[in-house]
């Protein structure tokens, strides 16, 4: 194996002030795989497992703070998450396998890297892995690749389920870096590939995700996470939709919606969400919302099916949310 330095700092200051090619290690479900595949080659692995980010805390405004090191499994099972953010619990349970969720952390989920075949295979050209080498996914076997937010340099799909729900919930990400702390909205956390596809997110060198803040969610039962994938468990989304609606007297007050499996980042379109403001639910409204969400979607060789499928999944998810019958992640019947 390639040699690398390993440290397990006890304070943020120690963790954040390291020069050179470093990677933070939390649950390890992604980084270790990538190191074995020769995709990541850090000189220094900084294990942040001792930093105090292990708790889920109630917030004065009725929201929750999710520690970055709380596992996905513990988050999904936490009574306050289940009570206030069933949409988040559902999205987490739609992803990966129980074994992976037991190890993977909330901070790590934000920072997980794409599952693009070409990114994972060092024999192939990939601008995200090796800047400037080109994008072999374009024109290649790209059934799973993104159709929204792509660039000439990259069409890699952002893979998370959890982050799609976080985007619909308008969560905030707390960061600690060499220059102190800052916060950023989760919708602004991930980057479009543009000309710099190697940048997945806005993290600066030495910066660590410390927590995710969830604002109060006013959706009641009117939410869902609906995921269509190649098999019924343990597969990344072809199309997924997270929706939360504020319903009043049969009308939608306002709505929040994010797409997974479709974009190079969690895909939100405020103009599409604005269409829902103070409207009664209807097929034509939902078709318009889907159309607006998918505006500009571009297929490459193999992934046009996503664009055909997505409007139907979006509409269905909206109806699930309207009727207060969120998708179960254990019973595979789509509601």
């Amino acid at each position: 194996m390639r040699h690398f330095a390993y440290s397990r700092p006890a304070t943020f200051d120690e963790a954040c002030h390291n020069a050179g090619h470093t990677r933070f290690l939390a649950g390890g479900t992604n980084l270790i795989d990538l190191m074995k595949s020769d995709v990541e080659r850090p000189a220094h692995v900084i294990d942040i497992g001792s930093l105090p980010m292990h708790h889920i805390e109630d917030q004065p405004d009725g929201g929750l703070r999710l520690g970055a090191l709380v596992t996905n499994a513990d988050t999904a099972a936490h009574p306050l998450v289940v009570e206030r953010y069933p949409l988040l619990a559902s999205a987490i349970l739609a992803g990966a396998s129980p074994q992976i969720r037991n190890m993977a952390t909330n901070g790590g989920n934000l920072n997980q890297r794409t599952r693009c075949h070409y990114f994972y295979d060092p024999a192939m050209a990939c601008n995200k892995r090796s800047p400037g080498t080109g994008c072999a996914a374009r024109g290649g076997r790209n059934r799973i690749m993104a159709v929204l937010g792509t660039s000439d340099a990259c069409i890699a799909t952002f893979p998370s389920d959890m982050c799609i729900a976080l985007a619909a919930l308008n969560a905030t990400v707390n960061l600690h870096g060499p220059d102190g702390e800052r916060t950023v909205g989760v919708r602004d956390y991930h980057c479009l590939p543009g000309e710099t596809p190697w940048r997945d997110n806005i993290l600066q060198p030495g910066e660590i995700v410390t927590a995710i803040d969830l604002p109060p969610a006013p959706f009641g039962p009117h939410h869902t996470y609906l995921k269509v994938r190649d098999r019924l468990s343990f597969a990344f989304a072809i199309v997924s939709v997270a929706v939360g609606l504020c319903m009043k007297d049969g009308r939608i007050g306002r709505g929040s919606i994010a797409l997974g499996g479709m974009g190079t980042k969690p895909w939100c379109v405020p103009e599409a969400e604005a269409l829902l403001d103070d409207r009664p639910p209807s097929h034509s409204l939902f078709r318009d919302v889907a159309g607006r969400l998918l505006h500009g979607a571009t297929a490459d060789r193999d992934n046009a099916a996503k664009i055909r499928l997505a409007p139907r999944v979006i509409e269905r998810a909206l109806w699930q949310a309207v009727s207060g019958t969120p998708q179960s992640q254990t019973d595979k019947t789509i509601r």
């Binding site: 599952r115 075949h117 295979d121 072999a136 076997r141 059934r143 019924l232």
Partner: peptide, 25 residues
């Protein structure tokens, strides 16, 4: 098995992307 004809390589060469049925299926 997804063949990238440009290089003659099967690209989904792992269990995350070569899908065999799970219990749920």
């Amino acid at each position: 098995s997804l063949m990238d004809e440009r290089v003659g390589r099967f690209m989904n060469h792992n269990f995350a992307e070569y899908h065999i049925p799970t219990h749920a299926d």
